[in-house]
Amino acid sequence: MPRFALKIEYDGGPFCGWQRQAGGQASVQQALEEALARLEPGEHRIQAAGRTDAGVHATGQVAHADLAKDWDPFRLSEALNWHLKPAPVAVTACARVDDSFQARFSAVERRYLFRIVARRAPVTQERGLVWQISRPLDPEALRAGAARLVGLHDFTTFRSVLCQAKSPVKTLDEITVEEMPYPGGAEYRLRFRARSFLHNQVRSMVGTLERVGAGAWSAEDVTAALNARDRAACGPVAPPQGLYLTGVGYPVDPFAG
């Protein structure tokens, strides 16, 4: 069966997350599988690079699907986008790939973005797409706290109790912090890069770093929380609406060319 890689963008607000749920709650996976069934009747199961939680968005999710017909990739993406309407899900790229390609297990890197907006007035145009706080943060303090998390660590403190990963030890390759103007306030964009992440790891780290940027925690407090290897030592967990899966890296980019 021909295998296709799909690059997917979605607003996670209306969904219970990426993964199909037994209870019938709307999921991104379900929306895509139902669109595939409109093209090729029957049951479809697709696999994604990351199982984003309820309310989390994506601009660069990757999934693979096996189909009966050897579709032209452009025609397949166009047909899927037609049948995905009106769900806030879009296939932005499609490529025919080798049978050995797996969206999840072939990935060597995942990239996330977290957007924080600091202003007093309610956010209207991007409501549900950012985490709004009322007071500005210190970007240098954010960077100092973030530096304590980069590298190989036991991230038990920043791991959900529901996490099913075999080990809490991960290598966080990079965190960058960018401050930019936002109407009536400021926006802070935190970018994370690693081979893989634990369940709720990014949101847990962002919640802790927000405390550092607000002056309630120090960079040393971040190190102490990390070394505690205790979920109770984590700061508040940031809400899902500011989080985006922005990209997945592979040894060979399936969408190149």
Rank of each mutant, 00 (worst) to 15 (best):
R3V: 14
A5D: 02
L6A: 06
L6N: 00
I8A: 03
G12Q: 06
F15N: 10
C16I: 01
G17M: 12
G17K: 08
W18D: 04
W18C: 04
Q21W: 11
A22Q: 09
Q25R: 14
Q25T: 07
V28K: 01
Q29F: 14
E33G: 07
A35H: 07
A35P: 00
L36T: 08
R38E: 15
R38S: 15
P41C: 12
H44R: 15
G50V: 08
R51H: 10
R51G: 01
T52D: 03
D53F: 08
A54S: 07
G55D: 00
V56T: 04
H57Q: 04
Q61P: 13
V62F: 13
V62A: 04
H64L: 10
A65R: 00
D66I: 08
L67N: 01
K69E: 15
D72I: 08
D72W: 07
P73L: 09
P73Q: 12
F74I: 13
E78I: 12
E78G: 03
A79R: 14
N81H: 08
K85G: 14
A87T: 10
A90W: 11
A93Q: 04
C94I: 06
V97Y: 02
V97C: 03
S100P: 00
Q102C: 03
V108A: 01
E109V: 05
R110D: 05
R110S: 06
L113W: 11
I116K: 04
P122H: 13
G128I: 09
Q132H: 11
S134M: 12
A141H: 00
A141T: 01
R143T: 12
A147W: 05
V150Y: 12
V150M: 05
L152R: 05
H153L: 04
T156F: 00
F158D: 02
F158K: 06
R159E: 09
L162Q: 15
L162M: 10
Q164R: 02
V169I: 13
V169D: 04
L172T: 10
E174I: 08
E174H: 00
I175Y: 05
V177R: 04
E179Y: 14
E179F: 14
P181G: 02
P183R: 07
G184P: 13
A186T: 05
R189L: 02
R191Y: 09
F197R: 06
N200V: 12
N200M: 13
Q201D: 04
M205I: 14
G207D: 02
G207K: 07
A214T: 03
A214R: 11
G215R: 00
W217N: 05
D221I: 12
D221T: 11
T223V: 09
L226Y: 07
N227Y: 13
N227F: 13
A228M: 10
A233W: 03
G235D: 09
G235E: 10
P236G: 02
V237K: 08
P239L: 14
Q241C: 12
Q241L: 13
V248H: 01
V248F: 05
Y250K: 10
Y250N: 05
V252N: 05
A256G: 06
